[in-house]
């Protein structure tokens, strides 16, 4: 019983972080139809920005989160201008953009390493203290705060995408680019906005994760980018609701495996899980139609 509560607790925390990361991938994929692999490095960059703002300058945690969102969002626009925009519409552009964003990701990661060094840095907590429930479960307020921040960000994103003019345009571009053009939306500017938003979300995910791990290093982004991708694809590429469900399912699954089987089994189990899912439901949770997959 108490083991189960531990799984749920850990799973929710992981799910909350994965959701932001995967939303970053999904938003960009939805609008531009490519996997933005610089997001892994931008995730790490977000954590370092917050580390500087909150850890070194001593400003409140919220300043670190907002700062990471804004600054990394701008970096995302830079990535778009340098590595994505010149490729849009070229034949074979899907794989070309994967490679170029991967390259930019490497450059960003190496720059992080040059600036802050390769070693682990200590990340300050958002909130301290904890609550003991039963004999196994210790709920850290820190992690509760992580889940709350994630929920607030997701809610804000939801309102943005359904209520605001530019939010609507992001979804419109994802569904029918020509129609968006004819409605007067500058597709190029929407792409920029999407890249900024996606990068900002990845940054917030990076901040939240490093506060949970209480440390950060330049390579942390890689394996979490991979998980973000797993979630994105499991959720059905480009589907926002599918992505959210997938994030929490995978968070719970990972927590389950690490509580019952041990840490080392997490990735292999996740991989097997994904293979099984793709065989049974090739479109992911959201079940994209057959012609979409090919």
């Amino acid at each position: 019983m108490s083991q189960i509560s531990l799984v749920i607790y850990q799973g929710l925390v992981l799910g909350a972080i994965y959701a932001l990361m995967a939303l970053a991938f999904t938003l960009v994929y939805g609008a531009l139809r490519f996997l933005n692999l610089s997001l892994g490095a931008l995730f790490t960059l977000g954590a370092y920005v917050a580390f500087v703002i909150s850890g070194q300058l001593g400003l409140p945690a919220i300043a670190g989160i907002v700062g990471a969102f804004v600054l990394v969002g701008l970096a995302g626009v830079g990535v778009y201008q340098i590595a994505v925009r010149p490729l849009v519409g070229r034949p074979g552009w899907e794989i070309a953009s994967i490679i170029s964003t991967l390259g930019v990701g490497i450059v960003i990661q190496q720059l992080i390493q040059l600036v802050w060094g390769p070693r682990n840095q200590a990340m300050p907590e958002i909130v301290s203290g904890n609550l003991r429930v039963g004999d196994v479960l210790v709920i850290q307020y820190q992690r509760v705060a992580v889940v709350l921040v994630s929920l607030v960000v997701m809610t804000a994103l939801w309102f943005f995408l359904t209520r605001s003019r530019h939010g609507l345009a992001i979804r419109a571009v994802a569904q029918n680019r020509d129609a968006a053009y004819l409605n007067g939306a500058s597709v190029n500017r929407i792409f920029m906005l999407v890249m900024a938003l996606g990068s900002g979300l990845a940054a917030v995910a990076g901040v939240l994760l490093s506060t949970v791990l209480i440390s950060l290093n330049p390579t942390v982004g890689l394996s979490y980018a991979l998980r973000g991708l797993v979630v994105t694809i499991f959720g059905g590429l480009g589907s926002i609701t599918g992505t959210l469900a997938a994030a929490f399912i995978i968070g719970l699954f990972e927590a389950f495996v690490s509580v019952y089987l041990g840490e080392g089994w997490k990735l292999p189990a996740l991989f097997l899980f994904l293979i099984v899912v793709l065989v049974i439901r090739p479109g992911g949770l959201a079940g994209v139609s057959a012609e979409e997959r090919t």
């Binding site: 359904t162 003019r165 609507l168 345009a169 979804r171 419109a172 569904q175 029918n176 020509d178 129609a179 968006a180 004819l182 409605n183 007067g184 939306a185």
Partner: peptide, 28 residues
């Protein structure tokens, strides 16, 4: 304003959202 062949609607958006997109430009 060009109303294209085949409608090119935003299938996963509501009727209202589709109409709102028609007024995307700031003036509208």
């Amino acid at each position: 304003i060009h109303v294209p062949q085949g409608d090119l609607l935003y299938g996963e958006m509501t009727v209202l959202e589709n109409l709102k997109m028609g007024a995307y430009r700031a003036a509208a």
